[in-house]
Design a protein around this nucleic acid. Sequence first.
DNA 1: ACGTATGATTTAAG
DNA 2: CTTAAATCATACGT
Length: 394
Amino acid sequence: MDDQTRMLTGLTGLSGLAQADVGDPDAVRKQSLGQPQQDIGDILQQIMAITDESLDEAQARKHALNCHRMKPALFSVLCEIKEKTGCVRARERRRLSRRGSSCSSSWRLADRQQHRALDYRAKLAQIRQIYHSELEKYEQACSEFTNHVMNLLREQSRTRPISPKEIERMVAIIHRKFSSIQMQLKQSTCEAVMILRSRFLDARRKRRNFNKQATEVLNEYFYSHLSNPYPSEEAKEELAKKCGITVSQVSNWFGNKRIRYKKNIGKFQEEANLYAVKTAVDAANVSAQASQANSPATPNSGSPGSFTLSHSGDTYLGLRSLNGEALNIAPSLQPQVDTLHPATHLTAGYEELSGSALYTPHRLDANSWQDTTNTSSVTSPPGPPSSDHSDTSN
DNA sequence: ACGTATGATTTAAG
DNA sequence: CTTAAATCATACGT
């Protein structure tokens, strides 16, 4: 029985048959020569069973093959490729950074594109190489396995009659099995190539603006968290999901938004008020009773009604004049200020930045993300030293 | 055709 | 890693 198990392992594992058993046919012959016929029948059944295996099992087999045979060689080849591409990338990077200061941007762009193409081609070559080596392995394994089985049958033919038809059938089965595995390999390789290509083309694809709904969602979040517009990882994920974009795109968006908002707050007043109204309305729908309960202490909290004016410029100016009062009420409502009175908050922040010096420590703290702003850039935007910001245009 | 808006990338700092 | 800031490259409105 021990002999049988040995043979079975040889049959069920491609790696096994590819290595030792075929490598030493005499051992096989010796084993099978003294074997009772019933064992041979069992073995044949085992062989037949191979055809009934699922693709998963085939995959597992492939994995086993990967693990045992030619693995070191393949691995070293892959390492070589990786090292080569890594070197190229590093060299390219160094070159870019060196040129960056002295050469024009068009050179850098060309370099980048060239590098991308290089990277793409290297990866493609890598995939191709892996595919071919795998294919070769399978072909070899197939022929070895076929030989193995043929030898087996030939030995058996001495003890029992085996028709050539039977042998033919066996060989056909083996070939079918291997070709199906090879097809799978081919398919997965094609898939990999397609993914690579689509990524490569994606990188060069023209920029697309996010759709309106997406920017609306993002803006809503931004202006309703104006005191701290740094969404957590979870928040980013949710926003990404809601907007149908990636998390990194959300991060990009917030990065751009923060810097652009900070640079020219005046320009974003209209937008801010718009979303302030939106979030205020939303908040009102949720906690209308609560805010009403608070209203006696804060008579001016009803003023967001003025935000509904379609002439946002007027709204802004009005808010500005109300600022003194707004300052008094805002701190008492701080936990809700962001959602209930964003515009007030915002305007106050603007006043602070524009040098009006009317601020509370609380507000300063809340808007600390803008603290590093160069105040002059707000009061007098970079470029033409115009008298003042959008106040005049508004 | 041009200027502006905007998403992405790069660089440097923490 | 994340972020601010600068910059790039393209989309888009006029």
